[in-house]
């Protein structure tokens, strides 16, 4: 019988610790598939963030470093500068990348560091228990915005992909979603493009992936998918925002 499916070599056999309905597992899978398809597992180095994906290194089968909160882009800079032959990516959530690590991501992007950032935006701090993130939507309730995000008090949610696209250094910046197969297919394409640009030593690349957190949103996985599609896709439009010249 012809083999039509085989295990993704870049993914380990460990069961993930992620909650039911969380899309981290899907995004891990996409990254792993791209690494295998590009045949770069032997020279790949991932950087895990602080947040729900802090243990991401357990689910991949290649070299990994675990950074402090928000510092993954600086760690990736250090690696890529001294070992330009390695294929390096950061895997970061919204609290990590867009709050405590905003300085590191902006400057890495602006220097045009030749690594890839996978930015998972699910609008809350997951690991620490559902607190408000820089990407929490207006009026969205979290454990630190119990009456809903008051934008008059804390500002509007940050559109990271657009913000970084405003920098002039050539870069590949896209936003996709991981909630339904049709979006997932596009997300994978974007991730693959980002890694390909890195392989060609062309530019910094960032793929923001709109994601879910049913546990901290207080929703069922199905409700979470629906809410993501209705609310998040409206505020965080999907597509390629910037491509290299």
């Amino acid at each position: 019988m012809a083999k039509t499916f085989k295990k993704t070599a870049a993914l380990s056999d460990q069961h993930t610790h992620y909650c039911p309905g969380c899309t981290h597992g899907v995004i891990h899978r996409l990254v792993a598939e791209v690494i295998d398809e590009l045949d770069v597992r032997g020279r790949a180095v991932g950087i895990a963030p602080v947040g729900c994906a802090v243990l991401a290194y357990n689910y991949f089968t290649f070299d990994f470093q675990e950074a402090a909160h928000g510092r993954a882009p600086a760690v990736a800079t250090g690696i890529k500068r001294v070992r330009p032959d390695l294929i390096v990516f950061t895997y970061q959530g919204d609290g990590d990348l867009a709050s405590i690590g905003m300085g590191e991501i902006i400057h890495s992007a602006n220097r045009g560091e030749k690594f890839t950032s996978i930015f998972v935006n699910n609008t809350v701090y997951g690991m620490t228990g559902g607190q408000m993130a820089p990407t929490t939507l207006s009026d969205q309730r979290t454990t630190t915005s119990p009456s809903g995000r008051d934008v008059a008090d804390v500002g509007m949610p940050i559109k990271v992909a657009e913000l970084i696209s405003a920098l002039e250094t050539p870069a590949y910046i896209a936003r996709q979603s991981a909630i339904k197969p049709k979006y997932i297919v596009r997300a994978k394409k974007a991730i693959k493009k980002a890694f390909q640009y890195q392989l060609e030593n062309r530019c910094f690349s960032l793929v923001e992936i709109v994601s879910t957190c049913p546990t901290n949103w207080g929703m069922t996985p199905i409700e979470a998918v629906k809410w993501t599609e209705e609310s998040m896709h409206a505020y965080y439009p999907l597509g390629e925002i910037k491509t290299p010249e």
Binding site: Q65, R71, A74, V75, G78, R81, E104
Partner: peptide, 26 residues
């Protein structure tokens, strides 16, 4: 060699982390 002026001492500390972590003298 590699010379890079980082954006802050915070970032520089982690550039050393990354570079040392992949085996380079830094």
């Amino acid at each position: 060699g590699v010379f890079l002026q980082g954006e802050s001492e915070v970032a520089v500390g982690y550039m050393l982390f990354g570079a040392a972590g992949c085996g380079a003298r830094v």
